[in-house]
């Protein structure tokens, strides 16, 4: 370890091993998959990554805070259903393209509201976030089916689905939105008082309470943020598909948690950052894209990702165990 510590770049990699992995698979696919390194494909990766990536930003906040949110996939589906359905309401029929605005606003508000409910219950009842959001996951998914009547909605206004094809200069607008969100959440987490208190609450809740930090509101804000980000992700996903299906976002919570944990955030809270999470979502995005280009069947991607997840955490555990003097527990 000491031989690495002289070089700042290598030292940085030691603390962010996921980026080493991202670099590795990036080089690997660039060399072995034909169209991987095309600008077009790289844009694709960022756009594909942004769906899970946006939610992962929120999940990082919630997990650093010592909680977890399993309801994000269902929230995403609910928001997508709202965004696509509301724009075709008769009340907005004469609004032209402006009819998209109330639809998107309502969808985002629905996401924030779902997060607020989760956060409020966790705050006031003290029930574990895992259980609360597990309930929310089932309940919200049920609401989606009730609302959609098990049908898919299709966007009547073509401007809506055109949005996902737009570009700002060379950059697809979806990628730009994702990058802006990364910067904003990173800034929130590392520079603001709310961000630092999020670490404090997750790192040592008792110490935070003793220091007079109001634990509940911080948790609720983070749940509202993840609700918002899940809804945003749902809206953007529905613009890509021009539709919303009731099964949208199934298993997304698992992908998101995988990405966040790969990025070095501790399940027990107090540790993690957005840089790591970005590495985690990119790792998943590049693997899925690259293996797709190499025509590896999708199930193998699952097997490989699962193995990588366990291997990364195993290495992390080994590393931490030597740090605390090798106590075998």
């Amino acid at each position: 370890m000491s031989m690495f510590s002289n070089n700042p770049a290598l030292r940085w990699l030691m603390h962010n091993p996921i980026w080493g992995f991202v670099l590795l698979i990036f080089v690997f696919f660039s060399l072995s998959a034909d169209h991987f390194f095309d600008a077009r494909n790289l844009q694709n990766i960022v756009v594909q990554t942004s769906t899970i990536g946006l939610i992962a930003l929120g999940m990082t906040l919630v997990m650093i805070n010592g909680n977890i949110d399993l309801s994000v996939g269902a929230t995403l589906a609910l928001a997508a259903a709202f965004a696509v359905d509301v724009q075709s309401w008769a009340a907005f029929a004469t609004w032209g393209n402006w009819q998209i605005l109330p639809a998107v606003c309502l969808a985002l508000l629905a996401g924030i509201a779902m997060g607020a409910i989760n956060g409020f219950i966790v705050w006031k009842t003290g029930v574990d976030a895992f259980i609360v959001t597990l309930g929310a996951m089932l309940g919200i998914r049920g609401l989606v089916f009730v609302y959609t009547g098990e049908q898919s909605f299709y966007a009547a206004n073509f401007a809506y689905s055109d949005f996902s094809m737009m570009s700002l200069g060379p950059f697809p607008v979806l990628a730009v939105i994702f990058v802006l969100a990364v910067i904003a959440v990173h800034w929130l987490l590392s520079r603001t008082v709310h961000g630092r208190n999020t670490y404090a609450v997750g790192g040592n809740r008792e110490a935070a309470v003793n220091a007079g930090i109001r634990v509940g509101p911080h948790m609720m804000i983070n749940f509202m943020l993840i609700g918002f980000l899940a809804a945003l992700s749902g809206v953007l996903l529905s613009t890509q598909m021009g539709a919303a299906t009731p099964n949208l976002g199934r298993d997304y919570e698992l992908w998101v948690i995988t990405a966040v944990v790969l990025g070095g955030t501790k399940l027990t809270g107090g540790k993690g950052d957005i840089i790591g999470t970005l590495g985690g979502v990119l790792a998943i995005g590049i693997l899925r894209n690259g293996m797709n280009l190499m025509q590896v069947p999708a199930f193998y991607v699952y097997v490989i990702l699962g193995s990588i997840l366990i291997a990364v955490l195993f290495l992390d555990k080994r590393f931490n165990r030597t740090q605390n003097g090798g106590l075998r527990l």
Binding site: R191, V193, N197, Y199, A200, A208, A211, G212, I213, G270
Partner: peptide
Amino acid sequence: LSLVPEMSAAENIYLGELPRKSLGRV
């Protein structure tokens, strides 16, 4: 000890009352 182990000494000293700038920045 009522400290948050992952945070810096400074943040622990001012835990709960970190000095702020505009926009809630530390």
